[in-house]
Computed example of a mutant assay.
Amino acid sequence: MEQELMRIGISLPENLLGKFDEIIQNRGYSSRSEGVRDAIRNYIVNFEWMSDMEGERVGVITIVYDHSQRGLEDALTEIQHDFGSIIQSSLHIHLDQDMCLEVVVLRGEGLEVRRAA
């Protein structure tokens, strides 16, 4: 089934277009138009997926932070206590002397998962 194509014009900064052209070449698209169509389809799917928050959802929050930032660890702990009913697991890793990685796995009603994030 063929669909009628509509022609549009867009303006992009040179650096953005350059990166887009690299992706088009790497992915094997035959034209910018093909790449733009694919990008728009992905944008629509992502938007619809993010908008549909009914029912159970699973999410992962990943945070990289400087642990010396005053009050940050306390705030993260408080948030995790506030959402304890949907937090399945958390992982804390010391990346170096200053930086930490926190991974929190959530499972629950979609709106509550979004609120926690």
Score class of each variant (00 low, 15 high):
residue 39 A to Q: 01
residue 116 A to Y: 08
residue 80 Q to H: 07
residue 47 F to P: 05
residue 45 V to F: 02
residue 3 Q to E: 15
residue 109 E to S: 10
residue 79 I to R: 13
residue 1 M to P: 12
residue 55 G to V: 03
residue 42 N to F: 09
residue 115 R to M: 12
residue 66 D to I: 00
residue 52 D to T: 02
residue 37 R to L: 11
residue 98 D to R: 06
residue 48 E to V: 08
residue 95 L to T: 13
residue 28 G to H: 02
residue 60 V to E: 10
residue 80 Q to L: 06
residue 22 E to M: 10
residue 39 A to T: 04
residue 44 I to N: 05
residue 40 I to P: 00
residue 67 H to S: 06
residue 64 V to D: 03
residue 101 L to Y: 05
residue 84 G to M: 12
residue 31 S to P: 02
residue 62 T to A: 07
residue 12 L to N: 07
residue 56 E to S: 06
residue 29 Y to M: 00
residue 18 G to H: 13
residue 10 I to V: 15
residue 91 L to D: 03
residue 23 I to G: 02
residue 89 S to H: 12
residue 15 N to T: 13
residue 6 M to H: 14
residue 110 G to P: 07
residue 93 I to V: 14
residue 58 V to D: 10
residue 5 L to C: 09
residue 106 L to M: 13
residue 116 A to Q: 10
residue 101 L to M: 11
residue 12 L to K: 11
residue 113 V to N: 00
residue 77 T to M: 04
residue 39 A to C: 04
residue 108 G to Q: 13
residue 97 Q to Y: 08
residue 71 G to F: 06
residue 68 S to W: 04
residue 51 S to G: 13
residue 90 S to V: 02
residue 32 R to P: 01
residue 37 R to V: 13
residue 77 T to L: 04
residue 108 G to P: 06
residue 47 F to D: 15
residue 7 R to F: 08
residue 29 Y to V: 01
residue 28 G to T: 01
residue 102 E to S: 06
residue 1 M to N: 09
residue 49 W to F: 14
residue 6 M to T: 15
residue 47 F to E: 15
residue 31 S to I: 11
residue 37 R to Q: 07
residue 106 L to W: 05
residue 74 D to S: 10
residue 90 S to D: 12
residue 18 G to K: 14
residue 17 L to A: 10
residue 20 F to N: 01
residue 38 D to W: 03
residue 38 D to Y: 06
residue 61 I to R: 11
residue 17 L to Y: 12
residue 96 D to A: 12
residue 87 I to Q: 03
residue 99 M to I: 07
residue 70 R to A: 12
residue 14 E to W: 05
